[in-house]
């Protein structure tokens, strides 16, 4: 019973990959992570670094938030074990999900981002300088909190640990993919004759609309993976 909660089978693996990266792309289909998408995609190099950092944080955040959800928040009757029910503080069918979900997840994410910043400053100082102010902004990135919430809210079936982690990772991959694509477009967009009023964010959004339209084509894949 415990082992099954931690693994994922191969067909669900491919479903996760395709749905997280293409079909329900976090930026283009779910509207998550738009602030850095518009803010950091001016250069391809910073877009890739930001995408990598966000993917890393999203994976870790998914894992830790799954553990908290499973063993701290879900009622003992559903999950089999709840820290507070075991300590007899709350009843076995009492759910802490609604109360503590947001606060604990955001605490986890803030800590993770701070950790990543500390480690990066020591081990890859050049990348740290390149990302500059955008690193602490990963805390307020809707995509990171979004993936933690999506893994634990209204899921058709309770996810396993591996599924949650993989979903976090591939959501990050989808995010990074779109960031790199957008930065490549915007670097060239700079040189064309864009009207003054449309320069910057407006024309970037129009391009995003076209990209979102293109990614909607992947919807056909959703049927193939079922």
């Amino acid at each position: 019973m415990v082992a099954m909660a931690y693994t994922v089978d191969i067909s669900s693996f491919f479903t996760i990959v395709i749905s997280m990266v293409f079909v329900s792309n976090f930026v283009l289909a779910r509207f998550l992570g738009l602030c850095p998408f518009i803010g950091v995609t001016n250069r391809a190099s910073s877009a890739f670094g930001m995408g990598a950092a966000v993917t890393f944080v999203m994976t870790l955040a998914s894992s830790v938030s799954w553990l908290i959800y499973r063993y701290m928040l879900l009622p003992a009757a559903d999950s089999g074990f709840n820290v507070f029910a075991a300590l007899a503080i709350i009843k076995p069918d009492a759910s802490l999900v609604l109360v503590l979900k947001t606060v604990t997840y955001i605490l986890v994410i803030a800590t993770l981002v701070q950790l990543v910043e500390l480690v990066m400053r020591r081990t890859t100082p050049k990348l740290y300088l390149a990302l500059g102010i955008y690193l602490p902004l990963i805390t307020t990135n809707c995509a990171v909190l979004g993936v933690a919430l999506l893994n634990t809210t209204d899921t058709p079936e309770v996810l396993t640990f591996a599924a949650a982690t993989l979903q976090g990772f591939f959501a990050g991959v989808g995010f990074a993919l779109v960031m790199v694509l957008m930065s490549a477009i915007r670097e060239r967009l700079d040189l064309l004759g864009v009207p003054e009023a449309m320069k910057g964010a407006p024309i970037a959004f129009i391009c995003t609309a076209l990209m979102a339209l293109a990614f909607m084509g992947f919807g056909g894949l959703a049927g193939a993976t079922r």
């Binding site: 503080i89 709350i90 802490l96 503590l100 605490l107």
Partner: peptide, 16 residues
């Protein structure tokens, strides 16, 4: 249900 209050305080305190 004071249990939820205690549990919340404990959770945030310990996690923090």
């Amino acid at each position: 249900d004071y249990g939820i209050v205690i549990a919340s305080v404990l959770a945030l305190g310990v996690l923090g």
